[in-house]
C-alpha cells in the first residue's frame, strides 16, 4: 500500500454550547499522513489549536476501534464519512486526497441536541432501551445455558441485529430523523430468541411509544439508515419490527 501525505481544508461546525447558535469555521491542516485515522487528523488539528491558545474542537470518541459507538461525525454529507460499514474512528485518511475540502457537521436531529461543537446528546437511545429493550431476568434465575437449543440461523440473525453499537448514524442519515433501525435491531435481537418471547408484545409497543415521545420521525423506508450503518444492520429488521408491532396490536388482550 502506497502511503502519501496531504494538505486539507476543513469546514467544521463550532457551537459553544446547547444555546449558542453555532457556525462553520474553516481550518487548514498540512502533512496529514494517509495512514492516520480521521480522528488522529483531528488530534493533530486540536494539538495545534491548544498550542495557539485556541479552544480545540470537541468531538465524541472513545474506543477508536469501531465498537463503542461514541464517535459521531457527519463527514462530507454522510454519517461516519465515505467508507461503507465503518465508524468515523475507523475511517482512515487514505479515503481523501491532497487538496480536498472536508465538511464536518454534528448529527442533526431534534432528538439529538448539540452539546458542544460536534458532540450531541444521544440519551434518548438509553430511554428507548429503558422502555423495554431487555429481557426481564433477575440475576441467579437462569436455567442451564444449553437447556434451550436455538436454531443456528436464528441465533446468527439475532446476533447480527445485536451488533448495533447505538451510534445514531441511522437517525443522522434518515431524512425523517427516524430511529427505527436502532429500535428494530433491538426488537429483532430479542424477538428472534426464545428467551425474548414472554415480553415480545409489550416490548415493541412500549419502545415505539417511547421513540415517538422522544421526537424521532417515522420511517419512510428510504434505506439511508441501512446504507450508513457502520455495522451494516439490514433494513429487514424494520420489516420484522413492523410485523411484531402489528402482531402485538392485533392480538393484544386489552
Amino acid at each position: 500500500m502506497e502511503h502519501y501525505t496531504m494538505n486539507l481544508t476543513l469546514k467544521v461546525w463550532r457551537q459553544k454550547n446547547k444555546k449558542d447558535k453555532g457556525s462553520f469555521e474553516t481550518y487548514t491542516v498540512s502533512d496529514i499522513s494517509s495512514e492516520m485515522s480521521f480522528l488522529e487528523m483531528f488530534d493533530v488539528l486540536n494539538e495545534r489549536m491548544v498550542h495557539e491558545g485556541k479552544e480545540p474542537i470537541a468531538f465524541d470518541h472513545d474506543c477508536r476501534e469501531g465498537i463503542c459507538g461514541m464517535c459521531s461525525m457527519y463527514i462530507n454529507g454522510r454519517p461516519h464519512g465515505p467508507w461503507e460499514g465503518t465508524t468515523t474512528c475507523q475511517l482512515h485518511m487514505r479515503a481523501f486526497k491532497d487538496g480536498d475540502t472536508i465538511v464536518v457537521e454534528p448529527w442533526r436531529a431534534n432528538a439529538f441536541p448539540v452539546i458542544k461543537d460536534l458532540v450531541v446528546d444521544r440519551s434518548a437511545f438509553d430511554r428507548i432501551i429503558q422502555a423495554g429493550g431487555y429481557i426481564s431476568v433477575n440475576t441467579g434465575n437462569a436455567v442451564d445455558a444449553n437447556a434451550t437449543p436455538i436454531e443456528k440461523n436464528k441465533a446468527d440473525t439475532s446476533f447480527a441485529a445485536a451488533a448495533c453499537i447505538g451510534c445514531g448514524a441511522c437517525v443522522a442519515a434518515c431524512k425523517n430523523s427516524s430511529a427505527l433501525l436502532f429500535l428494530s435491531a433491538k426488537v429483532s435481537h430479542l424477538a428472534l430468541l426464545p428467551q425474548g418471547g414472554p415480553e415480545r408484545k409489550t416490548r415493541v409497543v412500549d419502545m415505539i411509544a417511547q421513540m415517538d415521545k422522544e421526537g424521532f420521525g417515522s420511517c419512510t423506508s428510504t434505506g439511508a439508515c441501512e446504507a450508513v450503518c457502520p455495522k451494516e444492520i439490514p433494513i429487514t429488521n424494520i420489516a420484522r419490527l413492523n410485523a411484531e408491532y402489528g402482531h402485538a396490536g392485533l392480538t393484544s388482550d386489552k
Binding site: G77, R108, K175, N176, S177, S221, A227
Partner: peptide
C-alpha cells in the same frame, strides 16, 4: 401529515446534504 411531521424533526439541516448516498431520489 407524515411528511410535515417528519420535516419538523430536524430544525437545523445539513450543509452538505446526503443526496443519493444511501437512498434513491424517488424514495426521498
Amino acid at each position: 401529515v407524515l411528511e410535515l411531521q417528519n420535516r419538523r424533526k430536524r430544525s437545523i439541516g445539513y450543509q452538505v446534504p446526503m443526496g443519493n448516498k444511501g437512498s434513491k431520489w424517488y424514495s426521498r
